[in-house]
Every structure is written in structure tokens, then in C-alpha cells.
């Protein structure tokens, strides 16, 4: 990694949710949604956060933005500790740290016109006056490839792809430094996905944006990311640059994940292992290594001790980290 400071630094982030049930709403158990994750995002770069449902990738994204108050851990954005900020300071930070959501149907207020949705960020942050805000909103529509007459229309009048463009326009309105993209293309049709990916890539170059790109789609994440972190049950099991993780995955979960991707080529022969069993519940995660219940290489000690992320690159510059006891042998 370069010597410049990371834009986003996440240290030992934990996000646990209490579960209330039974009489008197007693706390009966805890969901360990995110259980101690570390990563950094450099300016202008994309970190892909990938994993299956329930692995905590979305929760991690939300905890970084402080949409949830993290249970513990430290999030540093642009050299500011998110945990110590007042509400006013947090608002200032969110100008630079925006979010795009998976479901473009739920993330736009159905009662507001597109003009209203796109001028709101300017109003909140006191940019321009009512007239100039309309013009700014119209320019945003130009930049995401939508017609300016959209300003007076409502979200339901647009298709999924168009709504995602509106969501992107809203996210870039205040010229942020970073956008957390939570499954931005998962709900879209194949021919629309590539349009939105291109749009995000264009804005990254144009505005030197950083992305935290959260997705379950391993082909999409490879295409957009510089670095990739693989999550499983609240933990990061492997993190390195995007080419290395596909060429030489070190963690058995990453290996299985990559070999499970359906390759759009009928001559491709499936190689690798199909994981057995289901993803355990984060309410009662397995002891030791959380992956041991499905791991084809698990030994007894994997049930008792939790492996730490360790360097496997052989260069000791922490460029390729994975958390598995048996990496040398498998």
C-alpha cells in the first residue's frame, strides 16, 4: 500500500443486536452481526466487501455511517473519529460520506418529486438558493443520463435502473469523497447492471471517489474493486487486492465461494468443492473458527480457537491477509 493516509479506517468494529422475546421483552440472545472487522480504504480506491446473506456486510456499511451506533470499535473517516463526533459534526462528515442503497424502490421517498429529492441535500447543507438548487438538480440529472423533465415527476414513474440513477445523483450531489454502495446493482436486470456499473466507474474517475462496494455478486465485485474483503458470519476471513483473491485465494471459504460462481461459458468445467450445509445463524455462531462447520479442511483445534488475520503474501507487507490455521497445508 502507498504511504498516503487511508480515507476510511475501520478497527475492530463490532455491531451486536439484542434479541428481545418472551414475556416482559427480556433480552434473550444477541445477534453477532459484525464481530470485529478491520479494513482500510485509500482515497480514490474501491474496497469490495463480499459475502453471503447474514455475513454482516450491510450492517458493517451502516455502522460505518453511524446509521447504527456500533457496539465497539473505531471508525476513522478523513482523519476524524466517527465515534466522538457531535450530531452537527456528523452531519458535516456525511457530506463527504454518502450511501447508495440496494432497493431503488424503497430508498426514494414516494411522495417527493425527483426535484425535491435531489435539492434536499443542498437545502440541508445550505448550498445555493432555491433557484440555483433547481439548476444544480437538473445538472445532476444530466450527469446520470436522465432527462431534465424528471424533476417534476415522482419515483413510481421510473424503472428500477432509472431510480438507481436518481439514487446515485443524490449521493454525488454534495461531491462526497466516498460512497458506500450497498448492493447497488443486485435488483437490476442484466442489461441495466452494466449501465449502472459504468456510471459508477465514470464518477470514480471524474470525482476521485472512493467506494465501499458491498455485494454478494463475485463477478461484479471483481470488476469494480481494487481490493476485496471476504466476510463470513461477522468476520473478515480474507482481504487482499482484487486480482490476487481470485488467482490465489488462501482461505477455504474464499476458495469455495469463487468456485461456486456460475461461469457464463458452457465449456467451463466445474472444479473445486461444493460446500456442505447451510450458513449458521449469527445469533449462535460456531465456536472457534466460525467457518469450521462447513470447512472441508477443519480439524479439532479449529473448533476451539479463533484464527486471526495473518499475512500470507510472504512479503510481510500485509498485502494479503487471511484467517485460517491450516493455510500452509491446504
Amino acid at each position: 500500500m502507498t504511504s498516503t493516509n487511508p480515507l476510511l479506517k475501520v478497527e475492530n468494529l463490532k455491531m451486536h443486536f439484542p434479541v428481545y422475546s418472551g414475556g416482559l421483552w427480556k433480552k434473550t440472545s444477541t445477534v453477532f452481526a459484525v464481530d470485529g472487522v478491520y479494513f482500510e480504504v485509500m482515497p480514490g480506491e474501491t474496497l469490495g466487501l463480499v459475502g453471503e446473506s447474514g455475513c454482516g456486510k450491510t450492517t458493517a456499511g451502516r455502522a460505518i455511517l453511524k446509521l447504527y451506533k456500533p457496539t465497539s470499535g473505531k471508525v476513522e473517516f478523513d482523519n476524524k473519529d466517527m465515534g466522538t463526533l457531535s450530531n452537527k459534526e456528523l452531519r458535516e462528515v456525511r457530506r463527504d460520506l454518502q450511501m447508495i442503497f440496494q432497493d431503488p424502490f424503497e430508498s426514494l421517498n414516494p411522495r417527493h418529486t425527483i426535484g425535491g429529492i435531489l435539492t434536499e441535500p443542498f437545502e440541508i447543507h445550505g448550498v445555493g438558493n432555491p433557484d440555483s438548487r433547481q439548476e444544480l438538480a437538473a445538472e445532476l440529472l444530466d450527469s446520470v443520463g436522465l432527462n431534465r423533465d424528471a424533476l417534476n415527476r415522482f419515483p413510481h414513474e421510473f424503472s428500477g435502473g432509472q431510480r438507481q440513477r436518481i439514487g446515485i445523483a443524490r449521493a454525488i450531489a454534495l461531491k462526497p469523497k466516498m460512497i458506500i454502495c450497498d448492493e447497488p446493482v443486485s435488483a437490476l436486470d442484466v442489461s441495466i447492471q452494466s449501465q449502472i456499473i459504468n456510471l459508477l466507474l465514470d464518477f470514480q474517475v471524474e470525482m476521485s471517489l472512493s467506494y465501499l462496494f458491498i455485494t454478494h455478486d463475485l463477478a461484479v465485485v471483481k470488476h469494480v474493486s481494487d481490493h476485496i474483503a471476504v466476510m463470513y458470519l461477522g468476520h473478515i476471513v480474507e482481504i487482499t487486492d482484487a486480482d490476487t483473491i481470485y488467482d490465489s485465494p488462501a482461505h477455504p471459504y474464499t476458495q469455495a465461494l469463487i468456485s461456486s460462481i456460475p461461469v457464463p461459458d458452457p465449456t467451463h468445467k466445474f472444479s473445486g468443492t461444493i460446500l456442505k450445509g447451510d450458513i449458521p445463524s449469527p445469533v449462535n455462531p460456531p465456536s472457534g473458527c466460525v467457518f469450521h462447520t462447513r470447512c472441508p479442511h477443519a480439524k479439532d483445534f479449529c473448533k476451539n480457537e479463533t484464527p486471526k488475520l495473518t499475512d500470507v503474501s510472504g512479503t510481510s507487507n500485509n498485502s494479503h491477509l487471511a484467517a485460517c490455521f491450516r493455510m500452509g497445508e491446504i
Binding site: 474501491t46 442484466v190 442489461s191 447492471q193 452494466s194 449501465q195 456499473i197 459504468n198 466507474l201 465514470d202 463475485l218 463477478a219 461484479v220 471483481k222 470488476h223 469494480v224 474493486s225 481494487d226 482484487a242 486480482d243 481470485y246 460462481i261 461461469v263 457464463p264
Partner: peptide
Amino acid sequence: SSIPRLSNKRKTRLPII
């Protein structure tokens, strides 16, 4: 041609419809 593939060069614009 528009679907992202593992063999693609990363961070290049995809051909689109």
C-alpha cells in the same frame, strides 16, 4: 458481452445495451 466476467480487465467500462 455486457455481463462482468472474472476474465475481464478490472475497472474498465463494460459494453452496454
